[in-house]
Structures are given as structure tokens and as C-alpha cells.
């Protein structure tokens, strides 16, 4: 492994990639299941009168932002495994680092995501660090921003992922 970043990786940095829309408008079914899984009784998600009064209508929990961009497990005509965060998998391949873990994540929330919204996202690789020796193996940290807007062009949030891609000793 060399410390020099491949030119294809250097070209990815700072460039918006993989712009895509949600595969379906935001809907309450996933909201109810998410709230049920964590016993979240916030009336914003269960009582439409409270939602109308406080948020001007029903919204999704802010922390569900990334949920809306995960592909269906299967869809007609789809081949191979369908993955979210493709820039991450591109980096693993280009940097020849077969293993990866999420080292940290942060989300900043903008306009609320409303039921019926259609969202658009794009991925931006912010930085790719130098080769490092870690407890898991030799690898690099990289940071990817996933920026999301709604159908009005309003910013609804940004997920910031810090990943460690690595090669296990002897791998």
C-alpha cells in the first residue's frame, strides 16, 4: 500500500456525486414503526392535531433522515446488492481497503421532513486521510457529507460520516 492517493480518489474530493431522489414520498408507516421500536410517544408523530399546531402538519422524526435513501431490498430489474452511500464503497475499492467501520457520525437538521415530501440527496467526499496503523489494521479515515433537500429546494439536513477503511493484518 502506498500513501499516495490514487488520482480517481483525488478527483472525487469536494465533488457532488450520486445525486438521487427518494424511491417513494415520505410516509407514515416507517415513522410509526420507528416510534414503536423505541417506544417514542412524542405526539408530533401520533396526534395530527398536535402536529398541525406545532409543526404545521405531520412530520417525520429528524433522526430518520438517512432512512429515506436506503434502497429497497429488492426491486424489479435490479441486479446485485443495492447499497446506500455508494461513495464509501467506491473509496473502499479504489483504495483497496476491503474492510470498513463507521468511526463516527453527525447529523445537522434543517427544515423538517414532511409526510409526502420527495427528497433529493447528494454525496460529497470531504477528505481522505493518510495511511494509519490502527487497532483493526492499516487503513485510512475518510469523511463523506450527505446533503439533502426537499422538493422546494429547502435544505433539510446533512449527514456527516467518518469511516475507517482498513486491511486486516495478513489480509
Amino acid at each position: 500500500m502506498t500513501d499516495q492517493l490514487p488520482s480517481k480518489v483525488q478527483e472525487m474530493i469536494g465533488k457532488p456525486l450520486y445525486e438521487e431522489r427518494t424511491e417513494f414520498p415520505i410516509e407514515m408507516g416507517y415513522v410509526y414503526n420507528t416510534c414503536a421500536a423505541v417506544h417514542n410517544g412524542n405526539p408530533l408523530f401520533w396526534d395530527s392535531k398536535v402536529a398541525a399546531e406545532i409543526t404545521g402538519g405531520q412530520i417525520a422524526p429528524p433522526t430518520m433522515l438517512s432512512v429515506w435513501f436506503r434502497p429497497h431490498y429488492w426491486a424489479p430489474g435490479a441486479e446485485g446488492e443495492r447499497k446506500a452511500l455508494m461513495t464509501h464503497f467506491d473509496l473502499k475499492e479504489l483504495l483497496e481497503l476491503p474492510e470498513a467501520v463507521v468511526a463516527g457520525s453527525e447529523t445537522i437538521f434543517g427544515e423538517p421532513v414532511r409526510i409526502g415530501d420527495v427528497l433529493t440527496t447528494r454525496q460529497i467526499v470531504r477528505e481522505v486521510g493518510p495511511l494509519k496503523q490502527t487497532k483493526l489494521g492499516t487503513g485510512r479515515f475518510w469523511t463523506i457529507d450527505v446533503e439533502t433537500v426537499n422538493q422546494h429546494g429547502d435544505w433539510v439536513g446533512t449527514d456527516i460520516y467518518t469511516m475507517l477503511g482498513y486491511r486486516r493484518p495478513g489480509q
Partner: peptide
Amino acid sequence: AWFERYITDWTGPKGRLGRI
């Protein structure tokens, strides 16, 4: 989602997450 629930259980529904 667990952390969001924990926070808004305390703040009530007007609590609005800015960052996590």
C-alpha cells in the same frame, strides 16, 4: 432514534433537534 426519543421525552414536542 433512541437518543431522539430520550431527548424529546424530556423537552416535550416543541423541542427541536439541531444536531446529533
